[in-house]
Design a protein around this nucleic acid. Structure first.
Lengths: 145, 145
DNA sequence: TAGTTTTCCTCTAGATTTAGTAGGAATTAA
DNA sequence: TTAATTCCTACTAAATCTAGAGGAAAACTA
């Protein structure tokens, strides 16, 4: 049940974008530096984010990315799904004929329920909530003596 | 967020075990045949199930496996965890020092919440529930004309 | 006791997925 | 025109998944 780095890095990049886009498009080079992720890898991730209508891009000098919608209107579900492809724990949920047992399989119902739980949780979290929490964490660090 | 075949086959095998063990230990060869999974692969899975105290084994002729506890006392969480190792969506939940950002990472809190949702769902499902549902599905099949 | 059945154990290996990197084309601002 | 930036297509090393082979150990049966 692990998320790939696509989802992990991608969500962090989106938070960074939400926090940084006040001054116009944000370059991948900035996100790469701040998040400690390779710029080349971010290119892949943002392709998916763009294809799924989550960000808009501006090419050329002083270009970059901005959120396609206000952060309050973007859920974590959308981000993770755009990057991970699907949140189904098992493939037979998308494609029942992968397994001839599908119709009589009790475990399949369990996985279906699990998928719903995961999705409803991620749908309940918006990017703006996450960005705000991130800001608070940065502004209220723990000081060591 | 996909489960491996370990968890998928393992849960099905446990359901099969719950349904078949009335007449004594169940051999892997039987489960393999019924579930369409290689016996050799089941050996691997049952090693983990046994190591985690979910099944007991009897070696030798007419040996096999039985549940270590009544099916009502075994949750899906235990089975999946035994086979999958961990249900953490990201590794930094188990080992915070994997990432220097852990202490100030808002996304980490999200993944922690997601892990809790997954676990509480799987803890709420017992093997006996699952076995009963499976039995009903078998006894009430859909007939095609 | 001998033979058979079954779990137990270690080692090996192909297939698939992950996590990137390389190199350059296209676009835009200055 | 130049520099900056996204966009696109390949390629690849490493990890993980999904087993399979071969035999040792244990226990039942005759």
């Amino acid at each position: 049940m692990r998320l790939s780095t696509k989802a992990r890095y991608g969500v962090r990049a989106m938070v960074r974008l939400a926090l940084s886009q006040k001054d116009g498009p944000v370059q991948l080079s900035l996100i790469a530096e701040k998040e400690g992720v390779s710029e080349k890898y971010l290119e892949h991730l943002f392709r998916h984010l763009k294809a799924n209508g989550l960000v808009l891009s501006q090419r050329g000098a002083r270009g970059g990315y901005v959120l396609a919608r206000p952060a309050e209107k973007i859920t974590l579900y959308e981000i993770v799904k755009a990057l991970e492809g699907s949140l189904a724990p098992v493939d037979c949920l998308k494609q029942a004929d992968l397994c001839e047992r599908s119709l009589f399989c009790a475990t399949r119902e369990i996985w279906k329920g699990l998928k719903k739980k995961i999705e409803s949780y991620l749908k309940s979290k918006t990017l703006s909530e996450l960005a705000q929490e991130q800001e608070e964490k940065i502004n209220a660090p723990i000081y060591h003596i």
